[in-house]
Design a protein around this nucleic acid. Structure first.
Length: 837
DNA sequence: TTAGGGTTAG
């Protein structure tokens, strides 16, 4: 409930903001208990603001500062979603909110009959006629229309009610009310075009020029993620002399958030609202908060979250859930848990959305056990699971390969009569597809058809991707044909997946051509698209003769044909590898060109891009060539450039900043952060900053970047790149040496497991075993390949011990940097200055 | 008029 006398609004993202020391320096090691977590004193004082009343002036209700670099934005962390933000066609309508409208018993009965009756049936008119004497005009009809929007997906029923009730109206006001209800209903159903038609009719016939009708249409666009259309309607209502009210502003701000518009545009609308003498309410703030949450801007979200107390707006369950979502996106799960734990004291009880948000946060970081523990906590608290929550659970079981649990959850869904939706099927198809269970995938597709669950673009993208990755190009082509016939529009995910397939099969030139084609079609590539192509340059490349995949096609239709042709060619196998010596210079030019395109299009790189750039550096023959690439880092991000350049040049002072970067990487899932560590150590090793590479690896090991890397006498390198692995071998042998010199006896055998070096992206080093074998030979370490395990080197403890005790061994094991300098040059200082945390 | 879930790069 908003305070009646808000004191001030102070939303200025650039203003200095009071900071407090994060109490989360030592995250709790125990299993998270959302409601049992006890806040630290410094944090609890930050949350003393009541959910419904203004904070006292003595309290300071801001949340702790994140421990992130000011230069590492959400893009770096991959927190910014690359998904289409709108949830149109999700087939999961929200339950009706009966508190909003007080429908008469007759209206409720009529709605029940309408719900049971088939669309376009004459029985609908019969029912409306029979209920007519008991229904008030326009209130009951408006109520029925709203409820149909909440629970039905049948626009013809809404149209029937609308046209029937319009014949009963006595004046323009009543017509206007019904019009607004019909627009709202159609918008909720996802039929924004129909909503627009109805709106235009109302406008033409003289009862649609109202703030209500305009606001309803804005909202209809908002629900469907169409922010530019919503803004256009908002501007047109002003041009017609109508004064937007709170609902209009809230709707357009909501539309901007859902449509992925820059949240600063929403902030402009917020200021305009104040300028026009309107008083933003909690929904305004919640929508603004959601806008910042969607793009992962924690700092702005935190300011709004605090401001809601300062200005007397108060916080509700939506506020908390939205804020917790952005905290989860920042990777700070400890803070998320603490914010949840403070909700009850502020009069707001965590609900299924709160838990789903935190659970998904853990899941995205690969912390599945903590996520699953929270499901148990939900059960113990009696919080009912809903469809979204079940989908989150299924997604975790998919990622962790718990197929028996998946079957159990599917049965549970059946028992609870919770229907699987497009999200559920997409998740299941992707999971089973990645496991190669195409039999299950076919069954799932069949079930979708039988149950009339509409496939989305993502369903087709997923199918094409899993078939392509399995080399089943004919099946992929068939799905593409089906997709083409569906009338759905291709999107960036579909194209990115296809470009990745071309890239991975050595057809990088074609991948770049398709990148241009998708732009011609108005589909903007995202960071994933670019990362796929940049990374592909490191793989073996195929040249294609004139009768190969592509003749330049241009237009929309041609592009579809080209895709089918490409699948056909991929199925046959085409081309010939390009000789190594012709690759490097061409590759450099192509990658530099891609960087330019990214900059031109405002596509911000993330940590995966940086890993790809570093890997490209590792493929360069000279330090000068690599510098050309690393300078590109500077165009994107001074922070990463400063750290990388500093490490490559051997500036000792750079380690403070480097550790800040490593701490930031802790907020990411293991595969992402280990890929970056691998890329960084590879480039350092490649350019003979060997001690630097070793220090980076040890920072990674300390932060548990690689799972099961190191037990005392058995070294597991299988997740490491060649540079990281070689640096690690030296560090591990030095550690064993110190154990030997301390007088301890080594076990019977010590071993090094190499696996296949699956994370190394450096051309020619895909077999980690060979690299380690060469290293061990070079340094004279007495290890041999195990007879029945070609990925494991072993040595009797006594033999290794004797070797380590030889006088010359220590000098062989100690690593050095080729470039070693004390101080950072003055010209680099400005770049690094802002990194001080 | 406000909150959570599915995909493509590593």
């Amino acid at each position: 409930m908003a305070s009646s006398t808000p004191t001030h609004y102070c939303i200025n993202p650039t203003k200095p903001y009071p900071s407090s020391q994060s109490p989360l320096q030592k995250p709790p090691k125990t299993t998270p208990k959302l409601l049992a977590a006890s806040p630290s004193p410094s944090l609890s004082s930050s949350f003393t603001g009541s959910s419904t009343a203004a904070a006292s002036s003595s309290s300071s209700p801001h949340v702790p500062q994140p421990r992130s670099s000011p230069l590492l934005g959400p893009e770096f962390r991959r927190a910014r979603t690359t998904r289409v933000i709108s949830k149109r066609n999700t087939n999961s309508p929200k339950p009706p909110n009966p508190s909003c409208r007080a429908a008469s018993p007759a209206a409720r009965d009529c709605l029940a009959v309408m719900s049971r009756t088939a669309a376009d049936s004459p029985a609908l008119t019969t029912a409306l006629r029979s209920f007519q004497p008991r229904l008030s005009v326009p209130e009951d009809y408006c109520s029925i229309l709203h409820d149909l929007g909440d629970r039905d997906k049948c626009p013809s029923k809404a149209a029937e009610v609308f046209h029937f009730s319009m014949t009963l109206t006595r004046n323009m006001t009543e017509k206007g009310k019904l019009l607004t209800a019909a627009i709202s209903s159609l918008g909720k159903m996802g039929f924004h075009e129909l909503a627009r038609e109805v709106f235009d009719t109302g406008l033409r016939e003289g009862y649609g020029n109202t703030v209500y009708a305009f606001s309803a249409l804005i909202s209809a666009y908002a629900r469907n993620g169409m922010s530019s259309e919503a803004v256009a309607v908002f501007e047109s209502m002003k041009a017609r002399g109508l004064r937007p009210n709170n609902v209009s502003y809230n709707a357009v701000i909501d539309a901007c958030g859902k449509g992925g518009t820059d949240p600063m545009i929403s902030m402009g609308l917020f200021r305009e609202m104040l300028w026009n003498g309107l008083r933003p309410d909690r929904k305004t703030f919640n929508s603004l908060l959601a806008g910042f949450s969607r793009v992962g801007h924690f700092d702005h979200a935190r300011m709004l979250f605090d401001e809601m107390i300062f200005s007397g707006i108060g916080r509700d369950i939506y506020t908390y859930n939205t804020f917790i979502d952005v905290v989860c996106k920042s990777g700070n799960m400890e803070l998320a848990v603490q914010v949840v734990s403070l909700m009850p004291a502020n009069g707001v009880r965590p609900n299924v959305v709160t838990y789903s948000t935190v659970i998904d946060g853990y899941s995205k970081l690969g912390r599945f056990d903590e996520a699953l523990n929270l499901f148990e906590e939900m059960k113990s608290l009696g919080i009912q699971f809903d469809r979204v929550c079940y989908n989150t659970l299924l997604s975790i079981y998919m990622k962790t390969g718990r197929y028996q649990e998946i079957a159990r959850v599917c049965n549970e869904l059946e028992m609870l009569a919770i229907e699987k939706d497009t999200f559920t099927y997409n998740s299941l198809i992707n999971g089973y597809g990645k496991q190669g269970r195409f039999d299950v995938v076919s069954c799932l597709m069949q079930e979708m058809r039988q149950r009339k669950v509409p496939p989305s673009v993502l369903t087709y993208s997923t199918l094409i991707d899993i078939y392509s990755k399995a080399g089943m190009y004919g099946d992929a082509a068939n799905v593409f044909l089906e997709f083409h016939e569906s009338g759905l529009k291709p999107d960036v995910v579909l194209y990115s997946s296809f470009i990745d397939t071309l890239s991975k099969n050595g057809l990088v030139d074609f991948a770049v051509c398709f990148l241009n084609d998708m732009m011609k079609m108005g589909i903007k590539p995202n960071v994933v698209t670019y990362n796929a192509v940049i990374d592909a340059f490191g793989k073996s490349r195929i040249s294609v003769e004139e009768d190969g995949v592509r003749q330049d096609s241009g237009g929309r239709e041609g592009c579809g044909n080209q895709i089918l042709k490409a699948f056909g060619q991929l199925a046959k196998g085409i081309g010939a590898p390009v000789a190594d010596e012709t690759r490097t210079s061409e590759e450099m030019l192509c990658i530099l060109d891609l960087f330019q395109k990214m900059i031109q299009q405002g596509v911000k790189p993330n940590v995966v891009t940086f890993s790809a750039i570093l890997n490209a550096c590792s493929r360069c023959n000279s330090f000068e060539d690599a510098s050309l690439f690393s300078e590109q880092l500077c165009l994107f991000d001074n922070f990463i450039y400063g750290v990388t350049h500093g490490l490559l040049m051997g500036y000792r002072d750079v380690w403070i900043q480097a550790r800040s970067l490593f701490d930031e990487l802790r907020r990411m899932d293991r595969p992402t952060s280990s890929a970056f560590y691998n890329a960084l150590t590879d480039v350092l090793w490649h350019f003979e900053q060997r001690l630097g590479a070793q220090k980076v690896v040890l920072e990674g090991v300390q932060r548990q970047v690689w799972e099961n890397t190191c037990s005392e006498f058995s070294l597991d390198l299988h997740l490491m790149s060649s540079g990281a692995a070689q640096a690690m071998v030296h560090a591990w042998l030095l550690r064993i040496r110190s154990i030997v010199f301390s007088g301890c006896k080594l076990p019977e055998f010590v071993s090094i497991l190499t696996g296949w070096g699956k994370h190394s992206k450096v051309a020619g080093s895909s077999t980690l075993r060979r690299v380690i074998e060469a290293l061990l030979n070079t340094i004279g370490a007495p290890f041999q390949l195990e007879r029945f395990n070609m990925g494991r080197f072993v040595s009797p403890g006594a033999v290794v011990s004797a070797w380590l005790m030889e006088s010359g061994t220590i000098n062989i094991l100690l690593l050095h940097d080729k470039r070693s300098q004390q101080a950072i040059p003055v010209n680099l200082l400005p770049r690094l200055h802002s990194l001080q945390l």
